[in-house]
């Protein structure tokens, strides 16, 4: 019997992870293009808050703020990325529960982990696009020039917000168990401001917290023009370890919460 995919002849052929990735990313792209209001709204709000921060800060702090504007822009860029990734993944899990689609993602032959990670990746890509626009507007408004080495910025900020994805998974898992807690967990994103601006150079242990070490490296990349291959290997290794560690821990929390929700019979209940 033929085992070739019978494309067009109506014989179901198995989908691999490539097909799965295409389906998940396509869905995200379709929603992004077809319903741009959410993305535009997010960009407008982010730019508005930056405007308040910039013009308000200049009135209060004057030259001091102007001198440190590069650092503020980089920090704000990373913060918008973090908030986008965190809220997208945690809210997405909550929404899937409401829509009744969560069970179908749990009940996939791929296993929930790859599907969830691909959905997370889709959210991160979307967040990069919107935060990129916010970054462009910030540079234009303030007349600031930064080193924009795309490879370095994407790698460093991508790894930085991977740790936040882990927090998003954990928050999503807790939302499965305690449905009404989602809005409270969104408050955590304001804590990202503290992490992004943490003095990780002066207080080394802060580097093991999400975002803190990555924020420092991103400042060096975008303000000083340090390229990815110019960073010490130890710094890059720590960035990877923190990213993988928090993502793994977040996913474990999510798995535990999912298992407990199944035990309690509340998985998918809303």
């Amino acid at each position: 019997m033929s085992r070739e995919p019978r494309r067009g002849s109506d014989g179901p052929s198995p989908a691999g992870h490539y097909r799965l990735a295409r389906a998940v990313l396509y869905r995200e792209a379709v929603l992004f293009v077809r319903y741009p209001a959410n993305a535009i709204g997010g960009v407008v709000i982010a730019v508005f808050f930056f405007g308040v921060l910039f013009y308000g800060g200049r009135m209060v702090a004057g030259q001091a703020l102007t001198d440190s504007i590069e650092g503020i822009i980089v920090g704000y860029f990373l913060w918008t990325l973090s908030v986008g990734a965190y809220s997208a993944i945690s809210n997405d899990i909550g929404s899937e529960v409401q829509w009744g689609t969560l069970e179908r993602h749990v009940m996939t032959p791929f296993g929930f982990a790859p599907v969830a990670l691909l959905k997370g990746l889709a959210k991160v890509i979307r967040t990069f696009l919107t935060s990129g626009v916010v970054l462009g507007v910030m540079l234009a408004v303030t007349g600031t020039a930064l080193e924009l080495n795309v490879l370095t910025i994407v790698l460093v900020s991508g790894l930085s917000i991977t740790s936040v994805l882990g927090l998003g998974f954990a928050a999503g898992g807790i939302t499965l168990l305690y449905k009404r807690i989602g809005n409270w967990l969104n408050l955590l994103q304001f804590g990202f401001v503290v992490l992004v601006s943490a003095p990780s150079l002066d207080v080394p242990w802060l580097r093991v917290l999400p975002l803190a070490h990555g924020s420092g490296l991103l400042q060096r990349a975008m303000v000083n023009g340090t390229r990815i291959w110019e960073f010490p290997v130890a710094d890059l290794a720590l960035l990877v370890v923190v990213a993988v560690g928090y993502l793994g821990a977040g996913y474990l929390v999510f798995q535990y919460a999912t298992r407990r929700a199944r035990r309690l019979g509340v998985l998918g209940d809303y």
């Binding site: 995919p5 019978r6 494309r7 067009g8 109506d10 014989g11 179901p12 052929s13 198995p14 989908a15 097909r19 799965l20 295409r22 389906a23 396509y26 869905r27 379709v30 929603l31 077809r34 319903y35 829509w99 009744g100 689609t101 069970e103 179908r104 993602h105 996939t108 032959p109 791929f110 599907v115």
Partner: peptide, 30 residues
């Protein structure tokens, strides 16, 4: 409520076929 209301009918069928482990192109006629 077990599909995505913001996707079209066909997009839903293709998406959930893929999630279910089937190449959506192979079941387009179905």
């Amino acid at each position: 409520r077990n599909d995505y209301w913001r996707l079209t009918v066909r997009e839903n069928l293709r998406y959930f076929a893929a999630i279910g482990g089937v190449d959506p192109d192979s079941v387009a006629e179905r």
